[in-house]
Simulated scan of single mutants.
Amino acid sequence: MDQKTFEGWDTIDAEEAGLDADALEQIIDYARGNESTMNRDIGQALADGHFGEPWPIGEVVGPVKNRAGPSGLLLRRGKIVASWGDVDRVDMTFSISKSYLSLCAGIAVDDGLIPDIDAPVRELVRPGCGFDSPQNRDITWRQLLQLTSEWEGTMWDKPDWIDHNRVVMGQAGNGAPKGQKRDLHRPGTHWEYNDVRVNVASLALMHVFERPLPEVLKERIMDPIGASETWQWHGYEKSWIEIAGRKMQAVSGGAHWGGGLWISTMDHARVGQLMLNKGVWNGVRILSERWIETITTPCDLNPVYGMLWWLNTDGSPIYPAASRSSFFGIGVGTNLLWVDPDNDMVVVARWIEGDAINGFTERVMASLIQ
């Protein structure tokens, strides 16, 4: 196990944490030995068609950064039990960015800026923001956050159909090829993992706050939980707009076409612990417990998805070895932010091959002895 000092964190040895020390070493060896096959040159990985989209429709329109090797942290009872790799290095995190977007939405709800998540989004954004058409006018905040909006249009030069029929975590639509345009359903009646629509949610939230979302996230969550100053949240070259007389960039909910949240393993762990604590940090309420429960409640149309968080629901768990209370931020790479309330545990694992994540979770669970 890597040995280092973690500023602001208590550490605990395996036995005291209720884990088998030998099994813990095997977990780390497994994580390191199953590094992602994704090219460390992320720009090249995307250019080579990682998301299966032809140019120019799949062109990268936001910044990218080369990745490091595997890294991770295991926390139990709020203390660090194990770490591997460079946990302070800032890397792209792809779709875990979506889970951070849900936290920004929670701030808006807690502050009363979004009084009702079942009300149409158009009531809180200005005309011309993509919610005026017959297909889009009745889309609600809940539908945007649960990925059931069926929003139609083009956002930052990417049409919604670029992600039609997308297969993610075994959750698929119609069996048709990804990017083959299909007939749209009524909002709230079809689940689809669609980055364009998540970017629409990001823009809509920026309109509600009238501030850049990274500014909101830093002030209301990252600074209060003691996160570093190193994380960044990027949008696209053309995602700059003016709101309330101020030019600001709408950030992306992933790095599908570049951009997204760039963050360290350590800062991910802090957010995971905040979620495990049901929105409380060192006795201070950061997010309402009600919001944490809302975003980790299964969507009616997809039992393994809440609001921009993946769930390990009975009957169809994503990772069968993990507890059914577990929920996850998951991004390409694979980047994994795993929160396990039943076992008072947070695990961050980065750049592990996707096919090895099941084996990783199995080994973590097998290491628990009390």
Rank of each mutant, 00 (worst) to 15 (best):
N282E: 15
W262V: 02
S252H: 04
R290M: 02
R285L: 04
I295S: 09
I286S: 07
V280P: 00
W262Q: 13
G258R: 05
G254Q: 07
I263D: 12
V304L: 00
K278A: 11
P303C: 09
G258C: 11
S264M: 08
P303F: 06
T265S: 14
S288K: 06
D267L: 11
E293M: 08
S252L: 14
G259A: 06
M275E: 08
G279R: 04
S288Q: 02
D300W: 00
I286A: 03
W262P: 00
L274F: 09
W291N: 03
N277S: 08
W281R: 12
G259I: 02
L274V: 05
Y305G: 10
G279V: 04
L301S: 07
K278T: 04
V251I: 14
G306R: 07
W291V: 01
I295C: 09
L287I: 05
H268I: 12
L276M: 13
V271P: 01
W257H: 14
L276E: 09
S264G: 07
M266I: 04
P303T: 02
S288L: 06
L287E: 07
P303W: 01
G254P: 00
G272A: 05
G258F: 13
Y305C: 09
H256S: 13
M266R: 15
M275R: 03
S252Q: 13
V271I: 15
W291L: 02
A269W: 06
I292C: 14
I295K: 04
A255R: 06
D267K: 06
S252F: 05
T294C: 01
S288N: 02
R270L: 14
N277C: 01
C299D: 15
N282M: 12
M275C: 10
R270M: 02
T294M: 05
T265I: 12
G258V: 09
T265F: 06
D267N: 08
M266A: 10
G259P: 10
L261P: 01
G258M: 06
G259S: 08
P298I: 03
V284Y: 01
T294G: 00
R285T: 09
G306L: 13
G272N: 09
Y305S: 07
C299S: 15
H256V: 03
S252N: 12
G253W: 08
Y305K: 09
I286F: 06
V304F: 02
C299N: 15
E289T: 12
V304Q: 15
G253P: 13
G260F: 07
I292F: 02
I292G: 01
H256R: 01
P298H: 03
Q273A: 04
I295R: 05
L287V: 08
K278E: 13
N277P: 02
P303R: 13
G260P: 05
V304E: 10
V284P: 00
G253A: 12
G306D: 10
R270F: 03
D300H: 13
H256N: 05
Q273R: 12
Y305F: 15
W262C: 10
P298T: 03
G283I: 05
